Simulated assay, not measured.
Amino acid sequence: MRHRLGSIRNRFVPLLLAAAALSLGSTSGFADSPQVLGWVEEGLILPERVAVKFKLDTGALTSSMHAENIDHFEKDGEDWVRFTVELEDINTDKQVRTRLERELIRDIKVRGAGGAEERPVVLMKVCLGNQIYEEQFSLNDRDKMNYPVLIGRRTLEKVGPVDSSKTFTVEPSCPDSRQ
C-alpha cells in the first residue's frame, strides 16, 4: 500500500506544480487584457467631437449612426452619400448640426420587426475611451431611439469586452482630431 501511495504522489505532484505555474502565469495575463467597458458609454463623433451615448451592442454586427436627409451622388466616378447629423451634445446640451459627405462603402439589408430595409454604410471616426476608431457605420434615422450610435461586433472586436452590468466606465479622452 505504501508503494502505491508513493507512486500516486509522484504522478500528481508534478501535475499540481504545473497547474500552479499555469494559474500564476494566467494572472499576469489579466494585466495585459483590454479594459472592460459598459453596455453604454460616452463617445465622441469626429471630427465635430460631439459627445453622445454609444450603445455597445453585441447583437448588432455592423455599427450604426444617426443620420437624416441621406442623398446618394457620384463623385470622381465613385458612389458617395451626403447626410445630416443632428445631435444633442450630452456635455453641453447644445444641438450640433452638420452636413457630411462620405464615400459609400456598401449597402446592407437590415431586417427588423418592421421588415427589411437597405442602408448605406460609410467610414466614420469615433472616439471611445482613449482610442480613435475609423469604422464602418450604417446610416439610419435614429431620432426615436435612445442611443444615436450603436457599436456593433465588428468594432467591438477591436474595442474589447463588454460588461452588461456596467455603464459609463470611461470618458472619451482622444487627442484632438479634426480630420
Rank of each mutant, 00 (worst) to 15 (best):
G6H: 08
S7I: 05
I8P: 12
R9Y: 12
N10G: 08
L17C: 12
A19E: 13
A20N: 08
S23M: 13
S26V: 06
T27K: 08
A31W: 12
P34M: 03
Q35D: 15
V40A: 14
V40H: 12
E41S: 02
P47W: 04
E48A: 15
K55I: 06
K55Y: 08
K55F: 11
L56C: 05
T58C: 08
G59D: 08
L61I: 02
S63N: 01
H66I: 02
E68V: 10
I70M: 05
E74H: 03
G77D: 09
D79V: 01
D79H: 09
W80Q: 04
I90H: 00
D93N: 14
Q95M: 15
R97A: 07
I105L: 11
I105S: 09
D107Q: 07
V121L: 04
V122I: 12
V126Q: 01
L128R: 00
L128H: 00
Q131P: 00
I132R: 11
Y133A: 04
E134S: 13
R142A: 09
D143M: 08
K144E: 14
M145G: 03
P148V: 02
V149P: 01
I151W: 00
G152P: 00
R153Y: 13
G160S: 09
T167C: 05
T169M: 09
T169Y: 10
V170P: 04
P172T: 03
C174R: 05
C174Q: 13
